[in-house]
Amino acid sequence: MSAIPLVVCDDSGMARKQLIRALPPEWPVSITQAANGREGLKAIMDGLGQVVLLDLTMPEMDGYQVLQMLKAQAISAKVIVVSGDVQEEAVRRVKELGALAFLQKPASPELVRATLEDLGLLASVPPQASEQAPPVPEIERPDFKVGFRDAFREINNVAMGQAAALLAKALGVFVQLPIPNVNIFEVGELSMALADVDQGQRLSAVCQGYIGDGIAGEALLIFHDSEINDIAGLLGIEKLNSELQEQELLMDLGSILIGACLSGIAKQLDVRFSQGHPQMLGQHCAISDLMHVNKQRWKKTLGVEISYGLEGMRVHFDLLLLFTEDSVKRLTDKITHLMD
């Protein structure tokens, strides 16, 4: 039985590894891996992608652009989108662009098998003619090492998508997702990272602490003051009449985004977080003022930067998940267990 050319296109090595592991072991495929949409499109055009497992949020060229190019050039490829962006609008758009199915990350082996069978893509193994007939060999799957930063970024990518789906429903808009940025920050470096968010504007910020299973940290959600009225308008509030009303609005949004992200991370790592109540970290101030008040709480930290944008609007939220230095070893152990 000849192998089916399959492209697995995702910028995360961890996501590719998880997906390849989830493939039916008897499915005769020849696997080509692509780390971004441009590589994936080239592989498909080179005849290596009769079937394609495609992520959406990627550098160079995202999954939407790949689907648009395939459709525009009438390239025949059977595409299944596998993404952490689970917004209803995301699913609708990829189906409109020609994707045959949409799977939520991380896709289980059972769901992958069922989807391939439903689409008629899982080539059946021919029955053995006799007891003496040789068994059909399993196709060899590539294996590779995945670093901590890549793996943790993918875990946050999945959690970020779940939070975006809740935010999209609350605001009635399509949320544009970034590629999460994961770094170990010193205090000064964190100050510079937050300064990039500032751009000379006045800011308001909500913070929420969390702890559980040897992992602890603080989430920081930053809003540009110039955008708060637009956000209120999406929620049907014509005018914010007081700072207290504004605080309640920001803390409600903080609960949605921060809570959903932490829940997504906890579920993947099999931990349980206890979360503090959201609090205003600062209101109508410069980023330097936020840092001056809080820098003693952040020494060396593992930071995840996520910037949500609202399509068609100049509105975005900057979310920082800050894990204590002592949490890194526990996170590493959890991710190693997950990958094994």
Rank of each mutant, 00 (worst) to 15 (best):
A123E: 00
M313A: 05
L322E: 04
V187Q: 15
M61A: 04
L310I: 15
P5M: 00
D333A: 11
G214P: 01
A219L: 06
L320V: 08
N156Q: 08
R38Q: 15
D289A: 15
S255Q: 07
I80G: 05
M58V: 07
P134H: 12
V66D: 05
K334M: 07
M160R: 14
R272T: 14
A164L: 05
V271F: 05
R330Q: 08
L53D: 05
G13V: 04
G98I: 08
C261P: 00
S108Q: 08
V52S: 06
F152W: 02
S226T: 07
A72Q: 14
E88C: 02
Q247P: 01
S204K: 02
A193R: 12
E325Q: 15
P135F: 02
E227F: 00
L53Y: 08
S204W: 00
I184T: 11
P134G: 12
P278F: 08
I231R: 02
W27N: 01
A43P: 12
V206Q: 01
L281S: 11
L41M: 12
C207W: 09
D10A: 07
K295S: 09
L338S: 03
L331N: 05
Q87D: 00
A107L: 07
T32A: 09
P25L: 02
G13I: 04
T332C: 08
G259F: 02
V293M: 08
A219Y: 10
S288W: 04
V81N: 07
L177K: 06
R93H: 00
L253D: 05
L111R: 15
R149Y: 11
R92H: 10
V293G: 03
M160G: 06
H292F: 06
F148C: 10
T32P: 12
I222V: 15
G209W: 06
I335C: 12
G49L: 03
L234M: 12
L171S: 11
G188R: 11
L262E: 14
K267N: 15
K169N: 11
E186N: 07
S327F: 03
I75V: 15
T32H: 11
V158L: 08
D118I: 01
Q132F: 06
D270H: 14
L103F: 08
D225K: 08
S255F: 00
L321K: 00
D326N: 07
L331P: 00
S76R: 15
S76K: 14
D230M: 05
Q268L: 13
E227H: 01
Q245M: 10
R149V: 13
I179T: 10
A193I: 09
V187T: 13
E140D: 10
F144K: 04
L97T: 03
A232C: 09
V173Q: 15
V206R: 00
E39D: 10
L70T: 08
G49E: 06
P127K: 03
G214N: 00
